[in-house]
């Protein structure tokens, strides 16, 4: 009779354990092993989500536990969706998301394409380029406030040097029109290397023989780029967009350090606004409804996007 893996495993199992689990079905044993994970998942993810949904229909305030809780139906949702200030923060977030992803994809892909060409010092340049993403967002936000300082800031000086504009005549984080761009610039500076690395992985995964075949077919470099490089890197690029989109939708630390959401509420992104509602104003019920709206938005958009990504991969 052949000795199966199962038999060998059974023999290797210490006797007390074997005795203890003897009599249990395979399904029951599977449950025993999976149960701790499921319990953790329920405790850490599912229960808080259900609890948050429950709180979103109340006027609960976590700092006023003695005050009592009243169910107020959909009032929180109604207030949020009709609040002009919330829509302004949504707009600020959309502006931040769109432009950061646009610039990061554009610059990240270009850098990856350049780095992918073999040249002397290639590895050194790669290391230098990825340095910003190794820093803490809070530190980055903090030191860019100095770079943007109108009187002593390097950024203003450089802009002034090349444009002839007086460096102290404009304020990147103090001006309503420039502040939204100031956070876009910093996030792009910090996270473009991430997009570059993913694109680089995509570029290096393209087999050389495809280009060689194209060369034989006398396809121009331009045509090779659009018909080979771009389609084959696209799934990687879309993945990078997904990561950056989710990350930037919940952007908090960098922007808080950089502008604090100001001037006024110009750069107050939804996550900053939500934090203020939940942990500064302590409107827990209201903030729960706000969080659920954001969750549904991100989840919905991400699901559509992932479907699109899968379709691109299947091509």
């Amino acid at each position: 009779m052949t000795d199966t893996i199962a038999d060998r495993a059974a023999r290797a199992t210490p006797v007390p354990v074997a005795r203890r689990i003897r009599g249990l079905s395979d399904r029951a044993i599977a449950w025993v092993f999976v149960a701790p994970t499921i319990f953790l998942l329920l405790a850490v993810n599912i229960f808080p989500l259900i609890w948050t949904i429950n709180l979103s229909f109340t006027d609960f305030k976590a700092n006023r536990a003695t005050r009592g809780v009243e169910y107020i139906g959909l009032r929180n949702y109604e207030r949020i969706l009709t609040d002009e200030d919330i829509w302004l923060t949504m707009q600020a977030t959309a502006h931040f998301l769109f432009w950061t992803i646009f610039f990061q994809v554009l610059i990240g892909f270009t850098l990856a394409w350049l780095i992918n060409r073999k040249f002397r010092g290639n590895d050194l340049w790669t290391t230098i380029i990825v340095l910003p993403m190794m820093l803490s967002p809070a530190v980055v936000g903090n030191f860019w406030t100095f770079l943007y300082q109108p009187q002593i800031g390097l950024f203003n000086y450089v802009v002034g040097f090349f444009s002839g504009v007086d460096p102290s005549s404009f304020e990147m984080i103090g001006s309503v029109s420039l502040a939204p761009w100031s956070i876009v610039i910093v996030d792009t500076w910090m996270w473009t290397p991430f997009v570059m690395l993913i694109c680089l992985a995509g570029l290096r995964s393209i087999p050389d023989y495809i280009y060689e075949a194209a060369e034989i077919d006398r396809a121009s470099k331009w045509r090779q780029f659009w018909t080979i490089t771009v389609p084959m890197v696209l799934p990687f690029l879309m993945l990078a967009v997904l990561f950056r989109g989710i990350e930037n939708f919940k952007m908090f630390d960098l922007v808080v350090q950089l502008t604090g959401g100001g001037p006024g509420s110009t750069t107050e992104l939804t996550s900053i606004n939500l934090k203020r509602e939940a942990f500064e104003k302590w409107r827990t019920g209201y903030a729960s409804a706000y969080a659920i709206i954001l969750f549904v938005t991100v989840f919905g958009l991400a699901s559509i996007y992932v479907k699109a990504l899968n379709k691109v991969k299947e091509r």
């Binding site: 943007y148 300082q149 109108p150 009187q151 800031g153 102290s168 304020e171 984080i173 103090g174 502008t259 604090g260 100001g262 001037p263």
Partner: peptide, 9 residues
């Protein structure tokens, strides 16, 4: 009119 430039926060 009377504060240093960049004095926004």
């Amino acid at each position: 009119t009377a504060t240093p430039p960049g004095y926004t926060n």
